[in-house]
Nucleic acid binder design. Structure first.
Length: 548
RNA sequence: GGCCCGUUGGUGAAGUGGUUGAACACACAUGCCUUUCACGCAUGCAUUCAUGGGUUCAAAUCCCGUACGGGUCACCA
């Protein structure tokens, strides 16, 4: 039996050989310094905030260098595969406007010359490369059962040796002859294909990570699995093949991968591939019981990008927050260039943190408040409406019915030098503006200092019949309230009130609060003058008269 | 346990041997402004850079040890 026949026996269904694929996917023709990056999520459930984070970084790095960024779905683990997960990833990326040059449209359709961009559709490619390794005696089949592997691990633990399949532990299967292998294959015993590592634990390798700098490791000597028993590759092998064929220059990924660097270097070397640059991004963390840990899909709702959509935190705010985590100088840049597109910021490896940041919801909401305070009322309304259409149907129909009133409301103290910063999330807006439209029904009024009903009615009736005039400008409007105060024994001048509070029943602020609460049902609102203008005198009278 | 990595305030961080009072932002506190709230403004918030020991005229910045924290050791990615 020749080695070719041997390899064919192990992998009988391979359509093409290595040379075919190397020709099919030629080198990219890009200018010097152009980076090819990628984001390679696995469809195991919801889209993780860390995936979005990495996507934004990868996309920026590629495009600011005149390079290419692509999306590749890593679905080599069928056990963890979740049905809609691929669509979710593609949709999220679209929603957040991360501009990939090459990507899957769905599992069978792709944009880009290096397709398919879904690993489960590339099985023949991986097998072609494994076959080549088999022929070169750089890989071998392994028939180990779960129990046998467990036994090895236990022995290693007992002897306090390194755990893994290497050296003497692998020597028995490494030494199998082609005939022995043939017997087992014909007997139908399942097998995986392992790397025949030439490395030694005593040698050192060095990787210069773009973010973490120089890292030294012992060389890999593990005969890791290349192809699982179902013929599908492991992450490690798929990574080496795909990122080579697809021309990735910089592998950006989470730093949970740092420790497998020796394996990857070994793989690239034995495959005869140049080792790409690596950039391991620190993961976003959470604190629990005083301890930090990676933000978790199971425990932390904010790990899911859908969480931000549901809450109605604008996409732009999330991106800004992620960029402040990515580059320490972003925040200052953004402060100085509030009107620029965030894509004008130059993301660089130099300003990336080497250790993971704690997720800070307060900071995100602050960013969101700032963002929402700066956009026009129309834009705000449109974003709010498209949010409500998905997450709050009732509110969305109100938004459409009372469009003009709502835009006017959102516009109060906006588009001025110091805009209000009332809103951080679309989900909290309904409660904040509901008194402005529709049937006003207030169950409990939050009266403040003045809470005697007769006095309250007296103030309101006097005000609405004698003083309020819709034609007044804001200054006149406030002067009228002062006149009202003078008439009823309240201080119209705060300084005088502070000097001699005992001379007055209260002050302008107290009186204004009565009016505010009566008209809106709450003590905290935007500028009352604007609110009253929007509501209109008829509605104001109605609300005042409905008080009992 | 082995192998990697990290440690500046409540949080994100600037800082890479000698003009740092240890920037800036969020949060917090107080005050001012004010028709409420928010905004804005002002002030405060690490006498000290996990810790012990070096090197040096000089260290948050360089070296070694210790502690603590994180990652990883799968036919998961």
């Amino acid at each position: 039996m020749t080695r070719e026949e041997y390899a064919h026996m192990l992998l009988p269904n391979v359509l093409h050989d290595r040379a075919y694929y190397e020709k099919k996917y030629p080198k990219r023709n890009l200018k010097e310094g152009a980076m090819v990056t990628r984001i390679a999520p696995s469809p195991t459930g919801f889209v993780h905030i860390g995936t979005l984070y990495q996507a934004i970084v990868a996309e920026r790095l590629a495009h600011e260098s005149g390079g290419v960024c692509f999306l590749r779905i890593e679905d080599t683990d069928q056990k963890r595969l979740v049905v809609d997960a691929i669509d979710q990833i593609i949709n999220s990326v679209k929603e957040y406007e991360v501009n990939f040059d090459e990507y899957p449209i769905d599992i069978n359709h792709y944009v880009g010359d290096y397709a398919p961009y879904v690993q489960s559709k590339r099985v023949d490619i991986y097998q072609a490369f494994v076959k080549d390794l088999l022929i070169k005696d750089l890989a071998y089949p392994s028939f180990l059962t779960e129990e046998e592997k467990k036994e090895i691990t236990e022995k290693q633990q007992k002897r306090k040796q390194r755990i893994g399949y290497y050296g003497i532990w692998a020597s028995k299967e490494r030494a199998m002859t082609m005939e022995e292998v043939k017997e087992k294959v014909e007997a139908g015993i399942p097998y995986v294909i392992r790397l025949k590592s030439k490395g030694s634990f005593d040698n050192k390798i060095v990787v210069n990570d773009c973010i973490k700098g120089r890292i030294e490791f012992p060389e890999n000597d593990m005969d890791i699995v290349l192809l699982k028993s179902d013929g599908i590759p492991t992450y490690h092998f798929a990574h080496a093949v795909d990122d080579t064929l697809m021309g990735t220059t910089h592998v950006t990924r989470g730093d949970e991968w740092v420790s497998s660097l020796p394996v990857h270097v070994d793989l690239f070397n034995t495959l005869g591939f140049p080792v790409p640059h690596y950039a391991h991004l620190a993961t976003i963390q959470k604190e629990e019981d005083g301890k930090r840990r990676k933000i978790s899909k199971r425990k932390d709702p904010e790990a899911n990008v859908a969480y931000y959509s549901e809450k109605g935190i604008p996409k732009e705010a999330v991106k800004i927050y992620l960029l402040t985590l990515a580059n320490s100088n972003f925040e200052e840049w953004f402060l100085n260039n509030p009107d620029k597109n965030i894509n004008d910021f130059y993301v660089s490896f130099d300003n990336m943190s080497t250790s993971g940041a704690l997720f800070d919801m307060e900071k995100l909401l602050n960013i969101s408040r700032n963002y929402l305070s700066r956009i026009s009322a129309e834009k705000f309304y449109n974003e709010l409406l498209s949010w409500a259409k998905i997450y709050d149907e009732e509110f969305s129909s109100d938004l459409e019915t009372y469009k003009d009133i709502i835009i006017a409301t959102l516009n109060i103290e906006r588009e001025c030098e110091k805009p209000r910063k009332d809103y951080a999330m679309f989900s909290e807006i309904k409660n904040n503006i509901s008194y402005m439209y529709g049937e006003f029904a207030c169950e409990t009024y939050e009266w403040q200092k003045i809470n005697d009903m007769d006095e309250i009615k007296n103030i309101l009736q006097t005000y609405i019949t004698k003083y309020y005039d819709e034609k007044d400008n804001q200054e006149d409007w406030f002067n009228k309230i002062k006149l009202l105060c003078d008439e009823l024994g309240y201080a119209s001048n705060m300084k005088e009130y502070k000097k001699n509070p005992e001379n007055f029943k209260g002050n302008v602020a107290d009186v204004s609060t009565v009016i505010r609460v009566a008209l809106t049902g709450r003590s905290k609102t935007p500028n009352l003058y604007d609110i009253m203008l929007i509501l209109g005198k008829e509605e104001l009278e109605k609300r005042i008269n409905s008080l009992s």
